[in-house]
Design a protein around this nucleic acid. Structure first.
Lengths: 238, 238
DNA sequence: CCAAAAGTGTTAACTGTACACCCATGG
DNA sequence: CCATGGGTGTACAGTTAACACTTTTGG
């Protein structure tokens, strides 16, 4: 491997984020309005250049903090999605983008400061068309999150520190776009060791009426055994 | 987003490959011996710099062809694993690596030409310690492939175009490191639509003795419904 | 007492697993 | 005719899915 650092057209590396949350029972994504060409005035995923002394993960976390104005970004779930490297994806120069997915519980209004002209939460279904290849990145993020809900405890990342099983179920129903049977959902969740743990005496009213729901915290399990499979998206009934 | 192309220390982008295959019933990985510093004389995953006019995927495919001497690399399964971007992973300069996994059926002897001093197939268990952070990349690749066998038809990528169910089962057993019940494996595979399709009259003797096995081709299904789960790696019996 | 939301019980259908058994071939 | 690998049958255990039912709260 021989390489003259300055011999070639340089590559730029960016970290972009698909930040998802659930508001009013629907999936939302954080978008920024671009202030310059190209794609000036278009909406795009937040992100920015990786600095010489930081990893893509670190850059993503920094950008997330800047765009959302969130003070404690350290504990949030941040996952590398994939890298997009087609030569012509940015008309200005060669840009390789490492994309990340972040999941937030009920979030603050985004911070419009820094380099983003404007940042807002947009319902997932009405997002797009976005700048660059961000439509595809966003679709990839949604696919990945939907799949990960099946075999990891990721859904708790959409919930506040203490949550009801009804809220957790809403996460699944919102991301998957399907209704789930409440009794069976409850049993599966509780039967999966390490998914959630009960908060002893706590309870909370959800809709103003009805029986107060018991509260749970996220468990420690990395993967769910058994997994919580979605109801047959296609194919045969089993 | 403002960026002066030449203002910063440039990033280099490489595409590295974890090329896996099964030889004599054990998992092997393709490694090259490094001819220069750093890590001169150490073994490493094959790979190289992404050129200005190609995507990381294209670069990976090109490198794969160069290292293996394989003529038809176009149809092979190549999957992006993840990107490694820690600032100090290469002592010379800032290198961001997009890692790929490739799966080959019974492969040719590798081609020692081009920039790699030497290339050979090494049993997975005896590979390492490798140069840079390649031990971690290789471990990540193994994890990913093991997981993907469960819910995709990926195992057929380890097999020749026409294969027996016994060969397919060996792929699972080799990658997972567990024995599987043959009758049940057969039924699950055949019950999963689109996993494999029968080659009408064909049959082949495998071990010199025994009943000739029917031949199958890879099916068209992207995901397996139902999935072929590994026997409880840990936790509760179900 | 009614509506709404949480939580429990029950049962029938299905799946997964373990293992016994038969088939075809070469030596 | 025996060893070896391919292929079929079967029965029990365990889980899933559908839905009826009870409990607790606010109006």
């Amino acid at each position: 491997m021989e390489y003259d650092k300055y011999a070639h057209e340089p590559f730029a590396v960016t970290a972009d984020l698909a930040v998802l949350t659930i508001r009013d029972g629907t999936l939302h994504v954080l978008l920024v309005e671009r202030g310059q060409e190209p794609y000036k005035g278009h909406w795009a995923l937040p992100g920015g250049f990786v600095q010489p002394d930081e990893s893509a993960e670190t850059a993503a976390r920094r950008e997330l903090a800047e765009e959302t104005g969130l003070s404690d970004v350290s504990g949030l779930h941040l996952e590398q999605l994939r890298t997009y490297s087609e030569p012509d994806r940015d008309p200005r120069m060669r840009v390789v983008t490492v994309a990340f997915t972040a999941l937030l519980p009920h979030p603050p209004e985004p911070n419009g400061g820094s380099d983003a002209a404007q940042a807002r939460w947009v319902p997932y279904d009405t997002a797009g068309p976005l700048a660059f290849d961000h439509d595809r990145i966003l679709a990839d993020a949604h696919d990945r999150v939907g799949a990960k809900l099946e075999y990891t405890g990721l859904a708790t990342a959409f919930c506040p520190p203490e949550f009801t099983l009804g809220e957790l179920q809403q996460v699944y129903e919102t991301v998957w776009g399907t209704a789930l049977d409440r009794p069976n959902f409850r049993r599966k969740v509780l039967a999966t060791p390490g998914f959630v743990e009960a908060v002893p005496g706590a309870a909370r009213l959800t809709g103003g009426r009805g029986k107060p729901a018991a509260l749970y915290r996220a468990g420690t399990a990395a993967t769910l055994h058994p997994p919580l499979l979605r109801p047959t998206p296609e194919g045969r009934p089993a």
